[in-house]
Each structure stands twice: as C-alpha cells, then as structure tokens.
Amino acid sequence: MTSLVQQKFGESAADYAASQVHAAGPSLAKLANLILPESHWRHLDIATGAGHTALLFAPRIAKATASDITPEMLQQAKRLAKERGLNNVVTAIAPADDLPFPSTSYHLVTCRLAAHHFAKPESFVRESARVLIPGGTFALVDNISPTDEDLAFRYNAFEKLRDPSHGRALSLAEWTDLIDEAGLEVESAEVMDQEIPFDPWVERMRCKPQTVERLRAMLEEEPLKSYLKPTATEDGLSFFLREAIVIARKPKETT
C-alpha cells in the first residue's frame, strides 16, 4: 500500500530534483565543508529524495547508495547521477527505521531535510548507528522545532497544513538526545536560518488555493510570525526555517 509520504513525494519528485533549497541550499555546502571523505568510503544517504546529498559526496568516494521509500524520487536520483556521469551511485528502496543493509557497512550515513517525516525517529537513528562502521560518521540536517511547546505545536501545524505527510520536526535537543542514546558521539551541532521562498514551497506540494491563503494568514499570526520572520520583497514572499546540522561519530571498537 502506498503511504502518504510516497504519494505526496511521488507527485512532486521532479520539483524536488529542481528545488534550489534541496539542490544547492546552504546546509549542503556546510556538509561539504564539515565532512572530508576518503576515496575508499561507502556512503548511505537515507531518504535521499532526488539524491542531492548522495551526489554531493559521490565524486570523492568509492560508492554512494541513495535510499528512499519513493520510487519516483529514486528515478530522479538515477537521472541526475547519469547526467553528471557518476557511475558509483546506486539506489535502493529502504525505510529509514528498518534499513535492509548489513551492520557496519558504511563509512558515512547522511539524512538531509527528511527526518521530520519519520514516524519513528529513534529507530532511524539506531539503524543509522547500526550500519555505520566503528569510527564512521553520521550527519543529520533537518528543520527543527523551537523548544517552546506551544510555538512548536503551531509550527508543526503550519508544516502539516502545507504537507500532510509531515510528521513532527524535533528540537535540536531531542535530536542530540536520540543520537546519544543510539551510542553515537556528537562532534558538532549548529543551527542556521534557511530562507524559503513561499510560492515554490507551496507549489511543490500542490497546495490548493484555500490552503495557500491559510498558510499566508498563519505567517502573520503571532507567535509564529516572530519565529518564521516572513518578508515580502519584489521577488515575492519568503520566510525562514531553522535547520540543524549535527555531525556525530560512532566510537571505534576498543580491544
């Protein structure tokens, strides 16, 4: 049975392949600076979407596996890899909370701008830790909620109205707790503002006119307005999401 996530992202796969937020957002450049892969590495990108993060590292490593639960997204990843002449990229259907890969298989596991869709984020982190080799790197990029419970509820309601497959954006503290519980050691954690152009954001999810108007209205309601900082310019309406970038390491085995 097709899930709501598969349905929504299957419909918009080509849009995500072309989305500048996903294809060339600041967090992608940040990952490139924070992670220096070696040529023998094997990389798993979880919930890869159109494959942008997998394709970022593929030219510098031995093999990149782009995994997702949406076939249409993996088709886009294959297309982009072929266009760039990357022959070391493979795709795989794989749920984030039950990865069909052997333990200690990858030097690098990443997940970018997808974890807020996961029903079991704790299982996703545990599975990521399981498939990493000792000493391997885990990198998470995702939109995060504020720590204030009421504001977090309003923010997630805003996201879910636009995209019914949205689960819940965790706070940075919640993510670092889950990473710690999975036995990984956080090496760095930072938050950056990501500007989101409003019109492409709603168009990617095929929002109905009444939904678009309600989302616009919510952007003007406090306390959400102060958190998302909507700005109207000659290029159109935009707002800001908070993105966490967390790098963690799986401890090396001791003898």
Rank of each mutant, 00 (worst) to 15 (best):
P230V: 08
A189R: 11
P102R: 10
P223R: 07
R249T: 15
R204L: 10
H43P: 00
I61D: 06
R162G: 00
V125Y: 02
P164E: 02
T233V: 07
E213C: 09
I144R: 01
A173S: 14
E38A: 12
S67H: 01
A182N: 06
I93W: 02
S165F: 03
T53L: 05
A248I: 02
A169M: 10
G167V: 09
D177I: 12
E11C: 06
Q76N: 04
F153Y: 11
S238I: 08
G136K: 05
E220K: 11
A14C: 00
K120R: 13
E122R: 03
A139S: 07
I61K: 04
P197A: 08
Q20F: 05
T2E: 15
F101T: 07
G236C: 07
Q6H: 04
E190P: 04
L31T: 10
I93E: 09
D148F: 10
K250I: 03
D163Q: 00
A32V: 03
L55F: 01
R154G: 03
H117G: 04
N87H: 12
N143A: 15
D142S: 00
T48S: 13
S145L: 03
F153P: 02
E72P: 03
A58H: 06
E72H: 11
S67T: 07
K252E: 15
D98K: 14
V89N: 02
P209C: 00
E213A: 15
A173G: 12
A157D: 12
I196H: 01
L113N: 14
W201N: 09
R130A: 08
I93Q: 10
F239T: 00
V202T: 14
A17D: 03
F240Q: 15
S128I: 05
A64F: 05
F239Y: 07
A29E: 14
S171D: 10
W201D: 11
P59F: 02
T104M: 10
L74G: 12
S171I: 08
A47M: 09
N156E: 11
D235M: 10
H43K: 06
T70V: 13
L28K: 09
H40T: 12
K225G: 08
D142T: 04
Q76W: 03
P102W: 00
A66D: 06
F239N: 01
S19H: 05
N88A: 06
Q6M: 11
A92K: 14
T176A: 04
S103Q: 09
L80C: 06
F158M: 13
E222K: 08
R162F: 00
A189N: 12
L215S: 05
E195D: 13
K30G: 07
R168F: 02
D163A: 03
F158E: 09
R42S: 14
R249C: 11
V186S: 03
A32G: 15
L237W: 04
T254K: 15
M192N: 04
P209I: 01
L140D: 01
L86M: 10
T211N: 01
S226T: 13
V89P: 01
T2L: 13
A94W: 01
V89C: 03
D177P: 02
I133M: 14
Y155F: 15
A139C: 01
I247Q: 04
R84C: 03
T48C: 06
